[in-house]
């Protein structure tokens, strides 16, 4: 037993937690506090700043572009929750059939688009939806003889974005649902069958309650991710918000305000609105998850 040990023990926690705590304070706590100050300022680049107090928020409230961004983002979020997640659950239920061959391979295939980062998916997708050379138009032309010149990306901005994220995320969310489904008590399902429950009744009263915790986690994750959509439209639309700003999202507007216009204050104000929306959605979602059966 060395004499220095008791003291060494009392310092050790700081040595272990230290690197994290220091970096956390400098790069999370400090920026968070400064985001509060910045939101009350107008800046021109990183240096010059003047206080406008709540002027940024007042400006946001009557900024049609900001409302446009919110509307677009909410449409996208709704599509994620009400189109993408049911598809993911359906796919997981198909894969969860007892004794299904090749489940591992199917799971890997459906999950694989997730390995491609958003930027790279955006690059691929923008060419898939391109006129003339795009896969979609070439396939439609080959199958139905329709014109090669239909500009999908320019005509249907939001639907193209939603279809692209379906490809990317249905398999990802399916992995969660599949893991949850495999934990559903089989004897309960059998008991329900013996009691004469049909497939829908079994799904509604046995499966759905059992996968609820995972389900609400996936819903929350999906909402959080969708509200922060940025790279996909930004890269697909070549660093623009698309025709008539139909691809403008909240984070894209934050980026444009802060780093193209140079007003970090306005960008921070948008950031706070985003944070409030996230917290609001999380609270509502937690309430719904508890009450509804």
């Amino acid at each position: 037993m060395s004499a220095g040990r008791p003291q060494g023990r009392s310092l050790a926690p700081y040595a272990l937690a230290g690197p994290f705590v220091i970096v956390f304070i400098i790069f999370v706590v400090v920026p968070l506090a400064r985001a509060g100050v910045l939101a009350l300022q107008q800046t021109y680049g990183p240096q010059a700043a003047e206080f406008v107090l709540f002027g940024n928020f007042a400006q946001l409230a009557r900024d049609p572009l900001f409302w446009r961004a919110i509307a677009n983002t909410l449409v996208f979020t709704a599509a994620s929750v009400f189109i993408q997640l049911p598809l993911a659950l359906g796919l997981a239920m198909l894969l969860n059939r007892p004794g299904l061959r090749g489940r591992g391979i199917y799971r890997l295939i459906f999950f694989s688009p997730q390995l491609m980062g958003m930027v790279f998916v955006a690059t691929l997708a923008s060419i898939v939806f391109e006129k003339r050379s795009g896969l979609l138009n070439q396939a439609l032309h080959w199958a139905f003889g329709v014109s090669l010149d239909f500009p999908w990306l320019q005509t249907y901005v939001m639907p193209t974005l939603i279809i692209t994220t379906l490809w990317m995320y249905v398999g990802f969310n399916m992995v969660y649902f599949l893991a949850a489904l495999q934990n559903v008590d089989k004897s309960l399902l059998e008991a329900a069958s013996i009691d004469g429950a049909g497939p829908w009744a079994k799904f509604r009263h046995v499966t759905l309650p059992a996968i609820r915790p995972v389900g609400s986690f996936v819903v929350l994750l999906s909402i959080i991710g969708s509200l922060q959509l940025f790279e996909l439209p930004y890269v697909m639309l070549n660093a623009t918000a698309g025709p008539a700003n139909r691809g403008l999202t909240i984070v894209m507007y934050l980026y444009q305000s802060g780093f193209e216009v140079g007003d970090l204050g306005y960008a921070s104000a948008i950031g706070w609105v985003l944070a409030l929306m996230l917290v609001g959605f999380a609270i509502v979602q937690a309430r719904l998850a508890r009450t509804e059966v």
């Binding site: 937690a17 705590v21 956390f24 400098i26 790069f27 999370v28 706590v29 400090v30 920026p31 968070l32 400064r34 985001a35 910045l38 800046t43 990183p46 959080i224 509200l227 922060q228 940025f230 984070v251 934050l254 980026y255 802060g258 780093f259 970090l264 204050g265 960008a267 921070s268 950031g271 706070w272 985003l274 944070a275 996230l278 917290v279 999380a282």
Partner: peptide, 24 residues
């Protein structure tokens, strides 16, 4: 305090920190 701060930080959306971190 640190544990509470870590849990609280989980709900911070990264885009909120984009502008202040850039400035920092």
């Amino acid at each position: 305090v640190i544990t509470t701060a870590v849990l609280a930080a989980l709900i911070i959306p990264p885009p909120l920190l984009l502008a202040p971190t850039y400035q920092l």
